[in-house]
Structure formats: structure tokens, C-alpha cells
Design a protein around this nucleic acid. Structure first.
Lengths: 161, 161
DNA sequence: TATTTAGGTCAGTCATATTGACTTAATTAT
DNA sequence: ATAATTAAGTCAATATGACTGACCTAAATA
């Protein structure tokens, strides 16, 4: 970068300021996942289980294929986690209309765990929102949305139709 | 939650809206770490190596103890990653004034890798900033900061004194 | 001198995720 | 009707990130 560019760069665009954002993202994401992680750890589950429970709860009767599309992991990875959740009766599997597919949905046990885990994160965000300006929250949401790739935007929009 | 509470809850505080934020955080964090992860993968490194390189670059001559305090992992975990980086000459170790301590700093090779990895994330944020309102970015930063715990706030502030 | 601190190390375990190869059953296209 | 594609599953091997617990050395401090 030339000196001229440095002079012309507004403060909020300087690399120093941007690195602050990188650090804030690192610290805040770690803090955000901490609560659920602790609960999951107690029942010998991990963050991957949370994700599966979350998205199965979000989209009832989701297929394996669609779940893989959201999580962007291999079916072998999903398999281990999902089989545990099915075996321990957090998730119920049934055959879809297309008989090649399977439909996943949360049992009451699964709904309870999902609620317990999400509640921690929801409460965390609620308390932040309560102490923040609505315009800041809207800015936060806008920037987060602009950070995600087109495919994930489509998935996000579809999940929230 | 009672019906009365639901009626009194503003839209931006409803659980449905908050769950959207949870999803945006998930998708955006994944997208944010994707670029560096790909580069690291090529040299048989992982995200843990990136973190070490990042914070050693950020705070020259940082001690093991302080690095552990930032990363919040065990010394056994750090050990594996750090030893690789030292062995492959990304990081240089020297003895501190207190001879029990060690000082870490990036070599030129380490500086180059740090710059290469950070550049991806910096450019991503730059392009977002260029297409966003300054007020939205400030809202984003404020909310991120309010999401982190007190200890991390202190660390963040110290890193950016 | 005793204790604490900084750092290191050995061993074992677990969770997440990958690649690659292969199988079965159902649907769709030719 | 047959061939091709799709959805799902499975076996095996590997890598990364992280943990607990036990133990050790050397230097600083109380």
C-alpha cells in the first residue's frame, strides 16, 4: 500500500481497525458457543450434535441431503452424529414420499434439548439487544448477512420463508 | 412465555428473529474462516496454527503464558502447534528477561504467512465495508464487543492499546 | 529455604472432519 | 424394459484440535 492510499483510507477502513474486527469475531464466536458446549459436554455430545438438532428443529422433516447441504460436511461425518442422536431418541427417522429419502424430526426429548441449548444463546442475544440501540442491531444483522456467500444466503432465506 | 408477553415483545426481540441472528452467526463465521483454512490445509496446518501466528504477530515477544491466556487452550494443545511452527521456522523463540519465560516472535516466513492469511479476511471485510453504511459497521462492531466476556474485553483492549 | 510460577513432556482419550471405495434401493430418463 | 442417476449407508484409514492427568525442571519470589 502506498503512502497516498494510507492518507486516503478512512479510519474505519484501515488495516488496524479491520484487524480489531477480526479479533472481535474470534472472541465473540468463542463466547457465543461456550454455553451450549458446556451442556453438550456433560452428555458426551459436541457442537456437531447441536447443529444437527438445531437445523432438524428448524426444518421439520428435513432430508439427509438437505441437512448435508446446510451443514456442508460429508455424509460420513453426519452419519456418526446423527446415528447417536437417533439411537438415543433425540431424533426420529421416517421414510419420505420419495422412498429413497428419509425424513428427520425431533422427538420431545430432542425438542427439550434444542430448547435448552438455544435458550442460552437466545438469552445472550436478548440481553445484548436490551442494552443496545435498535439501529446498532440492524447494522449487526445487515453486516452478518453481507458476510455470507450466495448459497448460504439462499439456504438462510429458505429456512426463514 | 405467555400470550401477553408475546404481544408486548417487539419484533426485533422475538425468538424467531433472534434465531435468525443465530443462523447468521453460524453461516458468517464459517464463511469467514473458509479462505484461510484452505491455504492452511495446503501446508498441512489448521486453524489453530492461524490463531497462534495471528496473535504472535499481533503482540511481538508475547510469552507462552499470555498466549495461552488469549487462546484459552491447554499448554499441551498449544505445544503441538507451536512446536511445529518453531520447527518450520515461522516463529522464533528466545528467553525473556525473567528467565523462566520465553518470548515468541514471527520470522520473515511467519510474517509472510500471517499477512497472506489475514489479507483474505481483511479484503473480505473491506469489500463489505465498501458496500455498507458506516453506521451499520459501527453497530456491527458495538454488538460484537458487547457479546464478549469481561476477560476477553480486557485482552482485546490490551492488544489494541 | 520453601513455595510458587513458567514452561515442558508423556500418555491416553475423545470429537470433528476428511478421502476413497463400495453397496443398496428407488426414481427417472432413454 | 433397461440404463442412469439419486439418496442413503457403510467400512476403513487418516488428520486436526482439544482434553485430562501425572510428572518434571529451572527460575523467581515469599
Amino acid at each position: 500500500m502506498t503512502d497516498l492510499n494510507k492518507l486516503l483510507t478512512p479510519l474505519f477502513l484501515s488495516e488496524k481497525e479491520i484487524k480489531k474486527i477480526i479479533e472481535l469475531i474470534f472472541f465473540s464466536y468463542r463466547e457465543f458457543t461456550l454455553g451450549p458446549d458446556e451442556i453438550l459436554n456433560k452428555i458426551n455430545y459436541g457442537r456437531a450434535h447441536h447443529r444437527v438438532i438445531y437445523f432438524v428443529g428448524k426444518q421439520k422433516n428435513i432430508t439427509i441431503k438437505d441437512l448435508l447441504g446446510i451443514l456442508k460436511i460429508t455424509k460420513q461425518s453426519l452419519s456418526r452424529v446423527l446415528n447417536q442422536l437417533v439411537k438415543e431418541k433425540y431424533i426420529l427417522v421416517s421414510i419420505g414420499e420419495d422412498k429413497r429419502t428419509k425424513k428427520l424430526c425431533l422427538t420431545q426429548k430432542g425438542l427439550d434439548l434444542e430448547a435448552k441449548l438455544s435458550k442460552i444463546q437466545i438469552n445472550k442475544i436478548k440481553s445484548i439487544i436490551n442494552n443496545a440501540k435498535e439501529s446498532d442491531i440492524n447494522g449487526f444483522k445487515k453486516i452478518l448477512y453481507s458476510m455470507i456467500d450466495e448459497k448460504s444466503k439462499k439456504i438462510f432465506n429458505k429456512l426463514n420463508e
